[in-house]
């Protein structure tokens, strides 16, 4: 289970690293939207804030990322440090006040599930609608990965019911996934037999 969580984290980290690299940015972050709490959570950070921001939460009804998750629309804002900033206090709480922010929603099946944000991109990107399009397209690609991650998390949470650990089930699933077709067929047959026996015990 710990291994699967690490893989999730690697997936998110690769998303923000690539976004940062595409736009030559000082930092990039992925926020996941916690609809119940109406908050955005830093899930992965590359660049400024990388060491301490993950897990930090802030209200989803504030700032650029808040607007993006609320409306499902991408936007960019620049020349922020030349005057008072768009939710500057939020930026200050992260330890880094950017001059430029590009943000796009991560949407899966019409539901915004997060925000991909790029801070201080290359000067050429800061004013460009075309680059905002590119970020939105990259966020679309990231959406499927994030959806899989959320589904995995939900599955793992289910396996932890009432404190019992079902690590073995996750390990069996991972083993089956790595097998060739013939081995997997035999493995699945074995699992089905086991399922039949357990169902008999449960009756």
């Amino acid at each position: 289970m710990a291994e699967a969580a690490t893989e999730d984290s690697e997936l998110l980290t690769s998303i923000v690293r690539v976004a940062r690299s595409i736009f030559g940015a000082a930092a990039s972050s992925v926020f996941l939207f916690d609809a119940e709490a109406d908050e955005l959570v830093f899930e992965a950070v590359s660049g400024e804030g990388e060491g301490f921001l993950v897990g930090t939460r802030f209200p989803a009804d504030r700032g650029i990322a808040g607007w993006v998750i609320t409306t499902g629309q991408a936007m960019s804002a620049t020349e922020l440090t030349t005057s008072q900033v768009f939710a500057r206090d939020l930026a200050e709480s992260t330890g880094y006040v950017p001059d430029s922010i590009m943000a796009a929603p991560i949407v899966h099946r019409m539901a915004p599930i997060g925000v991909l944000q790029v801070l201080d991109p290359h000067p050429q990107s800061r004013y460009s609608v075309a680059d905002l399009d590119l970020l939105a397209m990259f966020a679309n690609q990231a959406a499927l990965s994030l959806h899989i991650l959320l589904r995995n998390r939900a599955a793992r949470a289910g396996l932890r019911r009432e404190g019992a650990e079902y690590d073995t089930l996750a390990k069996i699933a991972a083993l089956l996934a790595d097998m060739d077709d013939e081995q997997r067929g035999r493995g699945v047959a074995l699992i089905e037999s086991l399922h039949g026996m357990l169902a008999g015990m449960a009756r």
Partner: peptide, 18 residues
């Protein structure tokens, strides 16, 4: 819709796109 000078919070001005 690109690099539009706009009013921001607390009297600020920035350039927004979208």
């Amino acid at each position: 819709g690109q690099a539009v000078p706009v009013a921001g919070l607390r009297g600020s001005v920035s350039r927004n796109s979208g």
